[in-house]
């Protein structure tokens, strides 16, 4: 009995991990685009990207999830709930990932550009060889923290009918009638997924200052 409950939760946890991984991947790609647009694109596009980040970060994810869940059918789009959730969360967290990458790129001193140019690199080379490697080191900790936030927020997918770790807790709780242990179990599940990310983030943070 206990074993089946645990297996069930582990199943839900693996769905959570896969959802989070997909969202992290999508939001990183989009976020990188946003960051580059905000920093180096044609000025009107920069403003647009900044506006996107500002607006996205001012609306609750739950509202976006619910909004799309209700609106998409009217647009004639019928996406499976997971796909819709991944797309919505991907675009939502792109705003955050964008800030992570932009912050890291801006933290590389301007003199590094000049240094690269003085060695004869052209802009794109300069960016790839001199700037990006330095920025990559700087963005690891904030990237991990944002990823942790993604994992926690995948729990909201249950609110639009997706099945993942949080849903297993609700189901087990309702079936066994023991809600407290069920939700504590779910909390433990999230903790086990997030803890390594948090540890890694603070490890990287500590060791990047030295």
């Amino acid at each position: 009995m206990k074993l089946t409950v645990l297996t069930y939760m582990a199943w839900g946890a693996s769905v959570t991990v896969m959802l989070a991984a997909a969202v992290i991947l999508l939001s990183s790609v989009l976020g990188m685009g946003l960051a580059l647009t905000r920093l180096y694109a044609w000025p009107p596009l920069r403003v647009l990207a900044a506006g996107y980040a500002l607006i996205t970060r001012g609306i609750p994810l739950l509202v976006l999830l619910i909004g799309c869940y209700f609106s998409l059918p009217y647009l004639g789009v019928t996406l499976p709930v997971y796909a819709a959730a991944i797309v919505v969360m991907g675009f939502y967290f792109a705003a955050y990932m964008g800030e992570v990458f932009r912050g890291a790129l801006m933290a590389v001193p301007r003199t590094q550009w000049d240094a690269g140019r003085s060695v004869g690199f052209r802009s794109l080379q300069n960016f790839g060889i001199v700037i990006l490697p330095q920025a990559r080191r700087l963005c690891v900790a904030p990237f991990l923290n944002t990823s942790l936030s993604v994992v926690k927020n995948t729990s909201l997918i249950s609110a639009i009918g997706g099945w993942e770790l949080f849903s297993t807790g609700r189901e087990i709780g309702e079936r066994t009638g023991e809600l407290m242990p069920a939700y504590l179990g779910v909390a433990a599940g999230y903790y086990l997924i997030c803890f390594p990310l948090a540890r890694l983030a603070s490890y990287v943070e500590r060791h990047s200052h030295a």
Binding site: L148, K152, N153, S155, L156, S158, F166, G169, R170, G173, E178, L179, M180, Y183, L184, V186, A187, Y190, Y191, C194, F195, A198
Partner: peptide, 19 residues
């Protein structure tokens, strides 16, 4: 830091009545 607000809310709202 490592658990979602959603879970905490459910523990408080549905879990506490059990005790």
């Amino acid at each position: 830091r490592n658990t979602p607000v959603l879970v905490q809310i459910f523990i408080l709202y549905f879990g506490l009545p059990e005790i």
